[in-house]
Computed example of a mutant assay.
Amino acid sequence: MRKPIKHTVTHENLLDLVPSGPVWRVDWGEIWSLWPELAVLDTCPQDPIHHAEGDVGTHTRMVVESLVSDPDWKGLPDMDRANLFWAAVLHDVGKPAVTKHEDGGRISSRGHSRVGASIARELLWYAGSPFAWREALCGIIAHHQLPFWLIERPDPPRMAIETSWRCRPDHLCLHAKADALGRICQDQRTILESVSLAALTFQEAGCWDHPFTFANDESRVAYFELDDRDPQYAAHEAFPCTVTVMSGLPGAGKDTWISKHRPEHPVVSLDLIRGELGVAATDNQGQVIQAAHERAREHLRAGRDFAWNATNVTRQNRSRVLRLLRDYGACIEIVYLEPSPGQLRRQNRDRPDAVPDAVIDHLARKLEPPQVWEAHSLLVVS
């Protein structure tokens, strides 16, 4: 169980600590004191074959110093430079949670990219970092190993196109180069060659410094759900209805948003169904989900616009709802609400059905904000 996040770090602190010219000096004393999640990296071991330099803290500092010495990084706009700097600082913050000693003296950290993105998201949420800036950084962390093995996959161009909607490829490869240089290993040259080939793959796919351009929203959504989809195919868009799928932690203001912006829509609300059925939020939710899906089907069969109101804060939970809506050919808009931690807790306390802060903390650690490739449109309210 991770300890609660420190609330004293601000986004302004983070920007102030980004090195600048002409010295480009990294203030490791200040940076390493920000969060205990960084200090613990100094005691986290790594596999000596891939990381002969030693612990994760040593590797992290080497990666950051490599990045800061790169002329390509120095030439970025200020906010992009800050984004990549903190991505490098936090890129392996997930390793302590997943590191294992294997047979034969090997050490593994499988899953650390995904876990690290989740930890970074929580740290930066409490720091008040802007949503888009934070998610761009978390995208880099979640996929930071991809340039090492992209060209070995069965369909590198397809993976390049998908990745371009999850993080910015040119920034991803810039980080990967620093990650390769910031280690001691026998295959460093091979890793750097793989990063160069990954960069070429992104460039040839037409998505080097921006998301791949699809013909329309339906073409994008279909591409992400159909393995054999041609990225150039222009899908026909004729939707029988539009469904507004709400997403946000308890107390984020989903009910208020619907009443203000979609007052004419019928609402499929999991909270209301739980109340009708007498099912507590901590009970098995199978009956509630079944009832919600049946009510949604009634609207979908009638071609009626409606709103689906639930937390939907993990991709797995959203995918079940989105699959149902896709089966009926609906146009899907996701509305994601993310107030600051303090405002969220105040709004939650003011609700008649307030949930304990511990529940919010638990959900916040699992949070996976929706991304635009999941639906035809995404509105973020933060």
Rank of each mutant, 00 (worst) to 15 (best):
D228T: 04
G29R: 04
P154Q: 08
P77H: 05
A198I: 07
H293R: 05
C331G: 01
D228E: 07
A310D: 07
W86C: 05
V18G: 03
Q145A: 15
A307D: 01
V221T: 04
T314F: 11
L272I: 11
K260E: 14
I191W: 15
E264K: 09
G286T: 03
D217Q: 11
V56S: 12
R320D: 07
D103F: 10
A302Y: 01
N216V: 08
D353W: 11
R274G: 01
W133E: 09
D47K: 03
I273K: 04
T99M: 11
I119D: 06
P147D: 05
D155G: 08
I334W: 13
S382L: 03
F306H: 02
K74Q: 15
H143L: 15
E368K: 06
H50E: 12
A176R: 10
A238C: 10
P4Y: 00
E162H: 01
D170H: 13
Q186P: 04
C138W: 05
D55M: 11
A127H: 02
P154M: 09
A354E: 09
M1E: 13
T60R: 13
R189E: 15
R297K: 11
D16H: 14
D255P: 11
L192N: 09
V195R: 01
V18W: 05
A82K: 05
A205N: 00
R168G: 01
C44Y: 08
D55R: 10
A234P: 00
Q188S: 14
R346M: 11
D70E: 06
G275K: 13
L200W: 08
V56Y: 09
E338R: 12
S247A: 14
P211S: 02
G57K: 01
D92A: 12
G21P: 06
L84W: 12
R351A: 05
I49D: 07
A87S: 14
R320K: 09
R158L: 01
I49M: 02
L197A: 11
I360F: 03
Q347I: 07
Q285I: 00
A252C: 09
T201H: 06
R114Q: 06
H11C: 09
T190Y: 13
P341D: 13
W308M: 10
A281K: 12
W125S: 11
H171T: 12
G275I: 06
V268C: 03
Q343Y: 00
T163W: 01
T43Y: 10
S33Y: 02
D16E: 12
E218F: 06
P147E: 06
P96H: 00
F306D: 02
L181G: 04
G29K: 03
Y233K: 13
P240M: 07
I258F: 02
H51N: 09
E122P: 08
R81Q: 03
M1S: 15
S382N: 13
T10N: 03
R81N: 01
R262G: 09
E152L: 14
A281N: 14
E333A: 14
L192A: 10
A281V: 13
P169L: 09
T244D: 04
V56K: 08
R345I: 02
D271P: 02
V268D: 02
V381F: 03
T314S: 05
I289H: 14
P263H: 03
L34S: 08
Y126Q: 13
